[in-house]
Amino acid sequence: MTGIEAVTLEKAIVHKVGNPTRGEELKLSANTLTLNDEIVRGLLTRYFLAPFNEHELYHFTHISDLDMNEVYSYAKNIFEDPSCFQRESVFLAQLLYNKSTHARVKEGELYVVLFDKVLFEGEEKKALGIFKSETKETFLKVFSHGQGWEIAAEDGININKLDKGCLVFRTDQNEGFKVCVVDNTNKQQDTQYWVTDFLQVQPFTNSYHHTNQTLGLCKLFIEKEYAEKFDISRTDQLEMMGRSMEYFKSREQFNLQEFAEEVIHHPEVVDTFMDYKRNFEANRNFAIDEDFDINLTAVKKQAKVFKTVLKLDKNFHIYIHGRRDLIERGYDEETGQKYYKLYYEEES
């Protein structure tokens, strides 16, 4: 997130939230943090806000009535009456405690923070932050002792690694606010308690969402389904990876039928891809449009993980950008080793 330096941290409180199935306690704080030290205030603001991608937006939902989404209601109450901040933060901690029953859920600190002047969509907004730190790291502390120095080990929080977070912007209230979400721990489907059980949020279906999800779908399909069902080589996988990314980089509009014809080609692979897309959507409880504007920010994000590199032992990396027909794979019986033969016209 950008513009963090101008953000005002107005209020913050910390509660300790354990896992009730392990007999861990919920320890509630009666007071907000003092935070008179400007350095600490600045470090906390960066720790809380830096990991968020403001383009990847969610909104609170409920199966019957939005006001029955508890996190949404507590956030709305704080925005409307900041004097109830401590009381509503207790309700948030109690709710999270009740949702923290899975065996993999770790005990941690819950931070509830009220911000002002957060730059979002070109305007300064009020925002409510809900964060949980679960991972402790060991740090060495050097301190003076007599005529020399001593070292002690202390457990603490790495302020460069936010475990879980939710940033609620005071906008679009009737649609469930606009929300950013971070969840860097417990990413398994059965432990998505932060997103699905506690927050109950769903993505906004905008161009960023459709672009990001479609590229994620393509990557998973090529790496898993395509490789397993059609017994293709690693170079075939990388070639399709390259074609997929090139399609998104060279177009302004995505069309599913055009993508299938130009990138996937073979009818039986296209049918498998369409089936995979339907399962992908069903498992995530959202749909990807067949036509949408391509979002370049999402393309740049996915390009970082769309690797088209063929790694051969620890000796060679071959970057494949196209022309699968110029790569020949073989096996040398004399040496008992595999090889690749590359055809080219110039080198630079």
Rank of each mutant, 00 (worst) to 15 (best):
Q200S: 08
V201P: 01
V201G: 02
V201T: 09
Q202T: 14
P203M: 04
P203G: 05
F204W: 12
F204H: 06
F204L: 14
T205L: 15
T205S: 14
N206V: 04
S207F: 02
Y208V: 01
Y208K: 00
H209C: 15
H209L: 11
H210W: 02
H210T: 06
T211Q: 02
Q213W: 01
Q213G: 04
T214Q: 10
L215P: 02
G216A: 03
G216L: 04
L217M: 10
L217K: 04
C218Y: 01
K219P: 04
L220C: 11
L220R: 14
L220H: 15
L220F: 10
F221H: 01
E223M: 06
E223D: 13
E223I: 06
K224R: 14
K224Q: 13
E225C: 12
Y226F: 06
A227N: 08
E228R: 09
E228Q: 13
K229N: 12
F230L: 02
F230I: 05
D231Q: 15
D231R: 14
D231G: 09
I232P: 03
S233Q: 09
S233W: 08
R234P: 07
T235P: 11
T235K: 14
T235V: 13
T235N: 13
T235S: 14
D236K: 13
D236T: 07
D236A: 11
Q237F: 06
L238E: 00
L238A: 06
E239A: 14
E239Q: 13
E239D: 15
M241V: 03
G242R: 05
R243P: 03
M245I: 05
M245K: 03
E246G: 15
E246W: 14
Y247N: 03
Y247T: 02
F248Y: 12
F248R: 04
F248A: 06
K249C: 15
K249F: 11
K249P: 14
K249Y: 09
S250V: 09
R251N: 15
E252V: 08
Q253K: 11
Q253E: 15
F254R: 00
N255V: 07
Q257E: 14
E258N: 12
F259A: 03
F259Y: 03
A260K: 10
E261H: 05
E261T: 08
E261S: 11
E261A: 13
E262I: 07
V263M: 05
V263I: 08
I264A: 01
I264H: 00
H265D: 10
H265S: 13
H265E: 12
H265I: 12
P267M: 04
P267S: 05
P267Y: 00
E268M: 12
V269Y: 07
V270G: 05
V270A: 02
V270R: 01
D271C: 06
D271Y: 12
